[in-house]
Design a protein around this nucleic acid. Structure first.
Lengths: 181, 181
DNA sequence: AGCACAAGCGGACCATGGTCCGCACATGTC
DNA sequence: GACATGTGCGGACCATGGTCCGCTTGTGCT
């Protein structure tokens, strides 16, 4: 079905023009020239539509840490990879923050049920197992990911005005402190 | 104005009966015997109404770590107080999770703009300053609080089924690892 | 008491995410 | 070509959070 593409293009266009929060589902349907029902039949809900728009960029990031070049991908030490993962995720949020934030808003806890969170968690957990810090690894993995949550990072960047490099430095410090343990 | 009390009581009653998510603003207005406009004039929005319902319990918790007995309140070492703070917050979420979750859902980033977050942040930051770990203190404070976020804790407890004691143990381990640095 | 004024209340109204059903059209069969 | 069947589309409809305005009610002055 070509409708799916038309909808995603219409949505992207409107998001660029007006910002994600100012685009209603009705507006997307109209811009795409389809009925509103079609949007919801194809995507289920608003959040899923936003994920679909993000998918390309999300896949690229995941490819990067699963199969890409070191230090993000395999080949570097676990501590270096963990640092690179956080820095990469911060960059990803820098580029796609608005969309990510909107995609996670609404249903509470959605974030954790997403396959994306599963992939991140599995990755961080496997790096922690390799690095063997003296803490509960599962707990630490959630804790580290919480530090990189879109909501927090967006708040640090835009409400508090902390610059990206400072966040990356904070992340490096945190990871090193934890792995030293 | 006695309306405020009537509304809060009606809301609490309905929340207990049906669960927070199954109670609409219209239902609260009807139960309280007031117009819907009155709800919004008094509280501004749904989230603020929920905070008002929570206020007593929230204030008690904050009193506890600001002025209460050690180790939660003043008198213990910073590391012990930080551990007690996290355990106390976990207990608080255990008791009020549903309401807290609902109160934070909706507006993204609301969590961080709340005076509650400000109070927690200031507290954690001051304990960290006292404990002097070798990390960026502001970054670490946000990171620690992110670990205790209602959304994450509720997910760990109810979707993943991790028990409260395990979370507390994880928190203790995390804090000790960080302060060792 | 009668009147002028202010406060604040109620519920009609709006926007938006999400649902649902009748219909149009494409496809397959004779 | 005519007809049966199924897919999937559109937009009316619903629920809910939030807004707004006209009116009631209480207050103070004469």
């Amino acid at each position: 079905m070509r409708n799916r593409e038309r909808i995603l293009e219409a949505a992207s266009r409107l998001f660029d023009e007006r910002g994600v929060d100012c685009v209603s589902m009705d507006a997307i349907a109209e811009e795409a020239g389809v009925g509103k029902g079609t949007l919801f039949r194809r995507f289920g809900d608003r959040s899923a539509l936003l994920w679909a728009v993000l998918q390309e960029s999300e896949t690229a990031f995941q490819e990067g840490f699963i199969r890409g070049p070191a230090p993000l991908g395999p080949g570097a030490r676990a501590d270096e990879r963990l640092i690179a993962f956080g820095e990469g995720l911060l960059d990803h949020v820098e580029r796609n923050g608005e969309l990510l934030l909107a995609a996670l808003t609404g249903v509470p806890g959605l974030r954790f049920r997403t396959p994306v969170y599963g992939a991140y968690l599995a990755h961080v957990l496997s790096l922690l197992r390799e690095a063997r810090p003296a803490v509960d690894l599962e707990y630490a993995a959630d804790a580290l990911l919480a530090t990189l949550s879109v909501e927090l990072v967006m708040h640090q960047r835009h409400a508090r005005g902390i610059d990206l490099e400072t966040l990356k430095a904070g992340w490096r410090g945190l990871v090193r402190a934890l792995l030293r343990a």
